[in-house]
Design a protein around this nucleic acid. Structure first.
Lengths: 245, 245
DNA sequence: GTCAAGACTTTGTACTGACATATTCTCGTA
DNA sequence: TACGAGAATATGTCAGTACAAAGTCTTGAC
């Protein structure tokens, strides 16, 4: 027997009905009201119970399927998916990650200046002589050095102050200015650290660093960040979820 | 003025109309007929021209938006997105990647046996005493060692033969059996290699390896592979695209 | 008792129609 | 000239309906 999730729809709200529904169902799954493997109320019944049309309900369910929360099989019905395949929102900054995990992140700005760099400008789809804000930060977690973060930002951000970067992550600073990165290409590798990196990160010569270079774009497709990071490999690994759904 | 892409719809085909349309539009973008920034014919006009309903056209366009090929803005219209944000199909195997890039991949199977491993079984959502096929492969590219690939597969694959793995990638072997991984969690790190790894990969003690552990799932949410790989960091880096579209 | 045909359930595809809302452009007015 | 109202345009949301197709289950013939 399918579980009837309690849902309340507010038709006067500006948020679309399908999204209201999707959010509430999503919460039910996250909270454990709906367990993996549980059968889900079918589209028609759900539509009737909530006085919504089938396309609206379908769209809500589709949203959850795209996130990997639900599994639809024709003729069989809809079921709650294995928790491990749920797609989390990606593209968070290291600062936010550390904070969420209960660490105490801190930042030292090592460099902060306007530069021209043809290689970076090209990667950001800007003219080769564009003025970029180049920043280098040392990121600490619980007082211990964890990573060196090189970043180059397009001209729109040239007025970001040194102080802005000490108390928050780069992405938070960008969000405050109404820019939200939504896509990024990342290349992840490893190498032996340079002398400067060893000094900053407190590494022995034999201890490697994990490297990540990234170009991030906003929803409109404008490049908003070029990053070249290196992490203490002993203390950090990168988690990604790849899928072709 | 919007470009009219040549599209032919076959209503007798079993493939859905919206998908036929999406494919052809996608081809037009990939081939360069439609350039980034080009305005796209609007939904209504496209529907009328092709004798399709608006929802059908909309769904086709939505498919391309999800892939990052198109950009829709209400009131403004639809345009072709910056090439850099196009989402490529992810989740390919190293073997296929090397082959696509023109390399000559080869595989030496170092180990191939049935084992029990509680840690892996748990990660694969199987009972702790499940019998798994454990394989260890040395992957070479153009005769040079590149990576050591440890993999554990669920019981369904226990009959995969040593020989099957020498001429093709693991994912190709799995696909031949009707299993297609579509989601995976990956954790990427770096460390100094063990003695055995140094020997197989021809590394000096100071040269690091890039590591990747992965759990992959099929469309139904069943775990289909656990992998623990290590790569020569000098010659290999991992590219991923993260997004929250 | 076995197996196949058909009924039933549920999701998939497609169409029609209507109205809402965001954005840009034009035009008229102060 | 500057600015605001409103038209024009395009996508966004929502309803209702019909039929197709995949899977499961029941039923009946042998």
């Amino acid at each position: 027997m399918a579980i009837q999730v309690g849902v309340s729809i507010d038709r006067s709200s500006p948020v679309p009905l399908y999204h209201q529904l999707a959010e509430q169902l999503s919460t039910a799954i996250a909270s454990g009201t709906l367990q993996p493997g549980d059968p889900f109320e079918n589209e028609i019944a759900l539509a009737e119970r909530l006085n919504l049309s089938r396309p609206t309900v379908r769209r809500a369910i589709q949203e959850l399927v795209n996130q990997g929360l639900l599994l639809r099989r024709r003729g069989l019905g809809t079921t709650v998916a294995n928790r491990k395949v749920h797609r989390r929102a990606e593209l968070t900054s290291l600062y936010d990650d550390l904070k969420r995990d209960g660490g105490r992140p801190a930042t030292t700005v090592l460099r902060h200046e306007i530069v021209r760099d043809e290689r970076v400008a090209t990667a950001l789809d800007l003219p080769a002589d564009a003025e970029l804000l180049a920043i280098v930060r040392l990121r600490l977690s619980d007082e211990r050095p964890l990573a060196i973060l090189h970043n180059w930002l397009p001209p729109v951000f040239n007025d970001i102050a040194r102080e802005d970067l000490e108390g928050a992550g780069l992405y938070a600073v960008m969000r405050d200015r109404g820019v939200r990165p939504v896509v990024a290409h990342q290349t992840i590798g490893a190498r032996t650290p340079t002398a400067a990196e060893r000094r900053h990160l407190g590494l022995k010569p034999s201890e490697p660093v994990l490297t990540m270079t990234r170009v991030a774009f906003d929803a409109v497709g404008n490049a908003v960040e070029y990053g070249d990071h290196c992490y203490r490999a002993q203390d950090y690994s990168i988690e990604v979820m790849v899928d072709e759904r």
